[in-house]
Nucleic acid binder design. Sequence first.
DNA 1: CTATGTTTTCAGAAGAGATTGAAAGAAAAA
DNA 2: TTTTTCTTTCAATCTCTTCTGAAAACATAG
Lengths: 204, 204
Amino acid sequence: MSTRPTSDALTQAQDQFVAVWGQMGSAWGISRTMAEVHALLYITGEPLCTDDIMERLEISRGNASMSLRALLEWGIVSRTHKRGDRKEYFQAEQHVWTLFRAIVRERIKREVDPLMASLYEIRDITQPHQRADARPSFAPPAAIADHNRRLDEMIDFFRTLETLSQGFVSPSGRGLEIAASVLSGSVTGPRAAEPARPGEGESL
Amino acid sequence: MSTRPTSDALTQAQDQFVAVWGQMGSAWGISRTMAEVHALLYITGEPLCTDDIMERLEISRGNASMSLRALLEWGIVSRTHKRGDRKEYFQAEQHVWTLFRAIVRERIKREVDPLMASLYEIRDITQPHQRADARPSFAPPAAIADHNRRLDEMIDFFRTLETLSQGFVSPSGRGLEIAASVLSGSVTGPRAAEPARPGEGESL
DNA sequence: CTATGTTTTCAGAAGAGATTGAAAGAAAAA
DNA sequence: TTTTTCTTTCAATCTCTTCTGAAAACATAG
């Protein structure tokens, strides 16, 4: 029927990869189509134009356009041109680790950073304007103290995570050693958060 | 109006934490309510029953029940009882790193493992039944060879990621050293996948 | 300038996922 | 046993996200 044989081994493998990658994407908060477009560009390895993508994935022009723009914003797909052709072509980052780094970097920027900001704001509600030198005159009530400890632990965790991620994100391998040392420091010993812990953590 | 003052600092901080955590959850493929229930249990730190949660989050009984069951399945919330009370109470894992490990472990199990299985299947389409001793008589066409290389790189990446994660997941700090060494081996040199090296998994 | 080819936008349609609420199920007390 | 209390289930409903398609915007050539 179609001009392109749809059942050769390569095409079949590509289609399956696209489906699987799309599935994965949607489990991680990325729209299925966007993940599929990326999968197609990655697995074919060659630059494709909007019409190629529309045809292959059977999606509308609008959808293709928006997905591509989003992928460009994530920095994991780039534009190219073919000479004598007015169309834009798109190709995906081919190094998996570079791809991974770009994704981690973006998600941190978009989700973790704002989260941190919110957490600091929340901390200010019960620990207002706490400067290092200014000791509070009265100890806070136990409920507040507990709350503060939990919140601080959470903040501490995300700070560590952010530091850690710099190991992945940095283009040189350098940051990795930092990350590794942070890991051994922080993960190994979940630390003195609980003095005499009643032992609820292990079995969970 | 209500018996509980809704505007004291602690309550306000808790509500805000719940909102922020719910937001974060939904960006990561977890239903907002489920994340909110978890947030509430984490930040209050004390066991709550279904009715407490329904009231505080203004959700239906069915929703509360389902969210709690899901959280139990994730292993980040546990059941408790109060003596003289027939109701079930729930409390959240209080160690942030333990919580993190549980989440990573579950997501790997639910998403990465099936993905890996699919990737292996896809590989079999273009590299069928490739046994170590049986060399193919003819080299595959370039398009297939390229495809295979890309797919192998992806598989290699997820294998590394899985190994890495064992460092986080293992309750002892031991696995961490492994993770760190994998990191320095694989991340630092992402390029090694291209040239002409047949054995793809040295340390794995 | 107009004509032609290409990309973006966005209101409405379609679809996916979350939530409710009432009924059924379970378990402990009487 | 029956009653009471609490928990789970699931079809119907609602909500939010994604997708479409046609129009508008843009760009290049002539």
